[in-house]
Structures are given as C-alpha cells and as structure tokens.
Design a protein around this nucleic acid. Structure first.
Lengths: 226, 226
DNA sequence: CAATGGGTAACTGTTTACAATCTACAGTGA
DNA sequence: TCACTGTAGATTGTAAACAGTTACCCATTG
C-alpha cells in the first residue's frame, strides 16, 4: 500500500456539474453577482469553459438551495434576500437542528466534543481579533459538527441545502452588527455545555434558545419583505 | 379580468424532466421496479420516448428523494428500503411536520378545517370498506393539508422530497397490518382536534404523538437493517 | 395618448451524436 | 490461489442544431 502523501493528491474526480455548483454558489454567496441578475447558460458555459450540460445541472441544484430562481424559458435569476427567506430558513433550521442535536448529544462522545472545543478555542481568539469572515467560518464549523455526529443522512442533506443561505445571513449580520462578534463564543459555549449533558431534551432546548437568539438578531436587519 | 374558471385550465407546460420524474417515481413506489434494479439511462430514454437529458434530470431528483442511488459511472439503482431509512424518514418528518403544524394551526381557519373534515369523512367510510390504497391516499391528503397551510415553501419542499418514501412505508404497513385501517380515522381526528385549538404548542404535541405512533407501528415491519 | 398587434431577437428546452472516462468482470500468468 | 491486465459495456462530458417561448420594440389603430 502506498501512503496517500506520496501519490498524486487524488484527482478527486467529482462530476463537473458538482464543481460548477460549488463555483457558482461561492460566486453568488460572495456577492460577485447582483441580486436579480440574469445568469445565462451560454454565458456561464463560455466563462467557465464547460458546456451547457453541467451548467444546467448546477443551476437546478442552486435553485433547490434557494440561491437562484428558475423561470421557464427565461432562465436563472440570482435570488433577492427577503425577510420571508430569513424566517423560513431559520425556522426550518431550528426544526432540523433540534433533531440533529438531540441525536448528536448521545453520539458525539469525547472525539466530537474535542472537535467542538477546538472550534470554541478559535472563537475565543476571534473575539479579540474580530475578523468577520473568520467568525462566519467558525460559526458554521461548530454547527457542522452537530450535523456530522447526528448520524442522519437526510437531515445532513437538508442542512447542506440551506447552509449556503445561512452563510449569507451570517455575513450580512456581521456587516450590520459588528458588535455581535463579541458574544459568539459565549453563546456557542453555552450550547456546547447543554449538549455535553448527554440529555436529548436538554440539547433540544439548547438549540431552541440558540437559534431563536440568532433569529431575533437577524430580524433587525433591514431587508425587503419579499 | 376574466375569472380563472372560464378560461382553459392552462395547458400547464411543465418541463419534460418533471413529467419523467413523476412517471419514474410512480413506477418505483408502485413496485414496478425491483429494489436494487439497475436503471440505465438509455433504456429509460428509449422506453419513455425521450432523450437522455430529461432522464438524467429525473434520476438526479429521484436520488435526492431517496428512491434511487446514483453511483458515479455506474448509473442509477433502485433503493432498497432499510430500517435506517424508516427511522430517518420518520424522525425528519416529525421534525418538519411539528414546525408545519405549529404554523398551520393558526392559518388554516375555516377553509382549512373544512378540507380536513372532508378527508376525515372519507376515512371514516374507508374504515368499513377497507381499500388499502384509498387509506394511503387519504392519509397523505390529510397531511398535505397541514403542509399547504403552513405557508412555508422550504418546509413544503422537504415534505415533497420525503413524501414518496412515506408513501412506500404506508403501503408496506397496510400490506403487513391490514387491521390498522381501523384506527386511521380516530388517530387523524384526534390530531385535527389538537390543531383546531389554534395553539401552536398543542399542535406540535399532537404531531409528536401522531408521528411517534406511526413510527412505532412501522418499526414492527420486517426490514433489512441497511 | 393608450391599447393592440405583428415581428424579431434571444434564450431555454430538447434531441442527437460522439468522445472520453470509468467500472466490472473475465482471463492471464506467476 | 492471488494479483494483475485487458476489454466490453455503460456512463459522463461535450457539442451542435432545432424547436418552442418569451420579452421587447414599434408601427398601427382608435
């Protein structure tokens, strides 16, 4: 057996459509496209040097994730973020993360909590340095751990389907309320301690509280109603 | 303005891929394919008289719904139902239907409850006639109403993504436990009354109880572990 | 000036064909 | 028996072309 380090870092033959999906998702969540902008298949195909096939596959997936709106015979348009979207994403997230946490708290064991503590440790230092993008990354990483340990493929998929939009919200929040960076650590530490009890009910209550807090802050953002 | 009732019910130009998705989903849930069967794109394309494009779109969607497994460069295989699938589908369903019911109970109003009562009325008569397929249809119709009135596009989509598998489970249950047909009405009536209180907490508790009951029965089915 | 209607351009939806790539499986040799 | 190799079959990726729609412009009409 040849160790992984020696051979080529595996060409990672993912489907081209999946790569395109990631690239476009990053471009949209990163603000490289304007909300409402018309994304044309042929333009994207030319720009990314692929054919229309993988582009269509990517757009279909991004539509499911809520990043673009597909109008028949019109094409794909970058979604505009509304108050309704924030509400839907957060209530749905609350529902599935509640389930995920209830399961994860009895499955994480030492390894899971060690991962979590590593993230928390970094959050603590972010509190002093204050780099908004780091805060977003760590916030997501923390919750990714819960989903990873809940051992529930379907919940994981639903999370992945809204994760991109959660990212957008977190970025918007940090841009509007930079002071929030200071409470990131304590809120997640509290949630971690609730999970550590190993009691599904306590874990679910912890999530309810955590997500509700995040939602209350987001509601203060100035967004169009729909 | 011409009222909708007078004009043609619009030819509803759906995409071919969507039609193919529905056809294949029905064929899979209806048992026309064997679990594990290898579905080849070209075969399906020939059989349905469409090109590979819509077929691929359909298979990608059915994979997200859990009806087929897509293996890279191998193709699509009809999923085998396992105990794990039953557990995942029901816990996820419990989580989102809890949310949906909490919202729906304050939005259904008279019209919604009228729809529900119409379904309940049919359930009562099924109890005497006992046609398993009718029981499945009515069970789904009842819960569809909750999702329709919860006014939450994303929850609706998640429901649609597991609805097909729930259908499979219900059919399997009726095949194994025909006696269940007798309790269908009373259990749903109980849930309807919980919703009618208009209290989100009561509605959520009603769902917890209802889904848990359904799950307990399904667990008695004899299914492979994975 | 507003409403109507024709015409056009642009884009998506679909089909077809072909090249490239990968998997599984059988066969080969040690 | 085991590991390797080669090949056939199937899928994915790409490309090109056509059909169907949609939006938009603009002249016409009242």
């Amino acid at each position: 057996m040849i160790p992984d380090d020696v051979v080529s870092p595996l060409p990672s033959q993912r489907a081209l459509g999946d790569l395109v999906t990631d690239v476009l998702r990053e471009m949209i969540t990163g603000g490289r496209f304007q909300p409402g902008q018309h994304l044309k298949e042929t333009e994207l195909a030319d720009a990314l040097k692929v054919s229309r096939g993988p582009i269509r596959q990517a757009l279909a997936r991004l539509e499911e994730e809520g990043h673009v709106e597909l109008r028949r015979h019109r094409g794909a348009f970058v979604s505009t973020l509304t108050r309704t979207d924030v509400e839907e994403v957060h209530t749905l997230r609350g529902a599935i993360e509640r389930l995920a946490a209830g399961r994860a708290c009895t499955r994480m064991q030492d390894a899971g909590f060690a991962e979590m503590d590593a993230v928390l440790e970094q959050m603590k230092s972010v509190d002093t340095k204050i780099d908004p993008e780091d805060a977003v990354r760590l916030d997501l990483q923390f919750h990714d751990i819960i989903y990873a340990y809940c051992d529930h493929g379907r919940v994981q998929r639903v999370w992945e389907s809204i994760r991109g939009q959660v990212t957008v919200f977190l970025r918007a929040r940090n841009a509007s309320f930079p002071d929030f960076l200071e409470v990131g650590y304590s809120e997640h530490k509290e949630l971690r301690d609730a999970l550590a009890l190993g009691d599904p009910q306590a874990a679910q209550d912890g999530i309810d509280k955590h997500i509700l807090g995040a939602y209350e802050r987001l509601k203060r953002l100035n967004l169009p109603d729909r």
